[in-house]
Design a protein around this nucleic acid. Structure first.
Length: 529
DNA sequence: TTGCAGTCAATATC
DNA sequence: GATATTGACTGCAA
């Protein structure tokens, strides 16, 4: 409990008593690998211990050791520089410099063959995950991450994208070689980087790796070499398989399967990927608009109505929530850059242009369509998707309770009280649902059940007409605005704003949900919106 | 138990 | 062929 508390709500150093500082010193030492068994007598070390490992880290990096010289696996070539005692602040500072060091022009040099990205997770004593490109030992990426200053994730990804495209390097290669991630993850990461402060330690790792890679003067050259080698290997394989007449390509799955004889295990076990039909997605989205946090009952109902597995529905909600959140992050960065306000985030914000990952569908089609700044960056491609998504805006339905009532339950239907969800059959019309905020379940599931239904009708339908409705309608935008620091300007009603508003509203629901949870805990909490 | 972050990997799209 | 999307999974924290 203490640990949890300390990790989530650390006090500033200056406010800590001598005793209170102790755990932090221990943590710092532990991060540096200097605290082995936890038996360190810390008393009186307020000055902060020496962080040798950090100092040893930077040298390899600065010396271009990030990726070892040609003979890969020999970490020897990059032996860390001699340690020099350094105070923690000094260490951190130099690390900061290291990681933030501007990225030098990319050019080529010679190759270092990266160790396979699939480094096994390390154990405690042998600090973990070596930097992919590096042969150098001493440093674990975790250490670097832990000590790393705030990085401009957006800027980093932007630069990485530039370098990759400029040099015609693929995400797959980059991901597998440098980050130890798959192509899809890389794509996602590059398109939708989260702000540094929203990232967990693990989530920061790829960014630190990218930064290090950017700082490596030979980065491109090394990747190029990798590429060449891959190609060679590929050709080789090809040739050999051709000459063997029996290509090693996977046998047609279909035939394999039909053979009852020896059903091949590996393949068999693979579950086919579920692909949700557009109507199903629409229905789920509608349900989400109603309830971002549906109760198990609602989920089940949804699953039944859509003929999906409940786990699929659950997963869908998880993914959707989390992706919506991410969309918001980017928008914060894009939109908030000037309005310091919401921007909260990393300095990254500055670069106004965003490479908005156009995915129309992915997150509600929510992206980009905001009015002011982004009009020009708009991607027509997603239009269609976004368009069809005139779903009711979540906020309209799940508006935050005007007063501190139990209202927030709006965002989550814990109890399913309202619940005449039943009947997979003809469901209550969406309009009904909307009009009856009191029966959230109903709303959610009915939303699912009426995919084709004109959402417009609903969106235009009077919002939960409670007393505040009339005033709240116009008011809502502004509250959102203050929450997110995003301009909701004039055209608020303009349909073009819909996606953005929906997204914001959805997030608002989520916040409400969390607030609600927090409220029940009665602990002081710092909220970050 | 629930929600989330991070990721994989199949599939869709460019 | 490269990149984007997205359902599923793992591990962790509350």
């Amino acid at each position: 409990g203490s640990v949890s508390d300390m990790l989530s709500r650390p006090k500033p150093w200056s406010k800590l008593t001598q005793k209170g500082r102790e755990p932090f010193i221990r943590m710092q030492l532990w991060l540096n690998g200097e605290l082995g068994q936890g038996v360190l007598p810390v008393q009186g070390q307020q000055q902060g211990p020496v962080l040798h490992s950090v100092t040893s880290l930077q040298d390899p990096l600065q010396q271009g050791c990030v990726s070892s010289e040609s003979t890969p696996k020999t970490s020897a070539s990059c032996s860390p520089a001699p340690e020099s005692p350094m105070s923690s602040s000094e260490s951190v500072k130099s690390l900061t410099e290291l990681v933030q060091q501007p990225c030098p022009p990319i050019e080529a040099s010679k190759e270092g063959k990266p160790p396979e990205p699939s480094d096994p997770p390390a154990s405690d004593s042998q600090p973990t995950t070596p930097l992919p490109l590096s042969g150098h030992s001493a440093l674990s990426i975790q250490e670097l991450v832990a000590m790393s200053p705030e990085l401009d994730t957006y800027g980093i990804t932007k630069r990485v994208k530039e370098v990759l495209t400029d040099n015609n390097l693929g995400q797959r290669l980059f991901g597998e070689t440098i980050l130890g991630l798959t192509q899809g993850s890389v794509s996602d990461l590059l398109a939708r980087p989260k702000p540094w402060h929203k990232l967990s330690l693990k989530g920061r790792e790829p960014f630190v790796r990218m930064q290090l890679w950017l700082n490596d003067p030979n980065n491109v050259e090394k990747l190029m070499d990798m590429k060449r080698m891959e190609k060679k290997a590929y050709m080789k394989r090809r040739h050999s398989s051709v000459s063997d007449s029996q290509p090693c390509e996977p046998p047609s799955v279909g035939t394999e399967y039909s053979q009852g004889a020896s059903p091949q295990p590996q393949h068999q076990l693979k579950k086919p990927r579920v692909v949700l039909a557009p109507e199903e997605k629409e229905a789920l989205k509608r349900a989400y608009q109603q309830k971002p946090y549906p109760s198990p009952k609602t989920i089940e109902d949804l699953a039944t109505q859509l003929n999906l597995k409940t786990s699929t529905v659950i997963n869908w909600f998880h993914n959707y929530r989390s992706r919506i959140r991410r969309e918001l992050f980017i928008e914060e960065i894009q939109a908030g850059s000037q309005g310091q306000a919401g921007a909260s985030d990393s300095p990254s914000a500055r670069s106004g242009r965003a490479a908005p990952s156009s995915e129309g569908d992915s997150c509600d089609g929510v992206e980009a369509t905001e009015g002011p700044g982004s009009a020009d960056t708009e991607e027509p491609k997603s239009q269609g998707e976004a368009e069809r998504e005139e779903v009711p805006r979540p906020a309209e339905q799940t508006e935050p309770p005007p007063s501190g009532t139990p209202g927030p339950d709006d965002a989550r239907d814990d109890d399913h009280e309202g619940g005449p969800v039943e009947g997979p059959g003809p469901l209550p019309s969406p309009a009904t649902a909307t009009a009856a905020p009191a029966a959230p379940e109903d709303a959610a599931t009915s939303a699912a059940a009426a995919p084709g239904e004109g959402p417009a009708a609903r969106s235009s339908a009077p919002p939960p007409s409670n007393s505040s409705s009339s005033s709240s309608a116009p008011r809502r935008p502004s509250s959102l605005q203050s929450l997110f620091g995003l301009p909701e300007a004039a055209g608020a009603r303009d349909s073009r704003d819909n996606p953005l508003r929906k997204k914001k509203a959805a997030n608002l629901n989520s916040i409400i949900h969390r607030l609600e949870k927090a409220a029940s805990r009665e602990e002081p909490i710092e909220w970050e919106f």
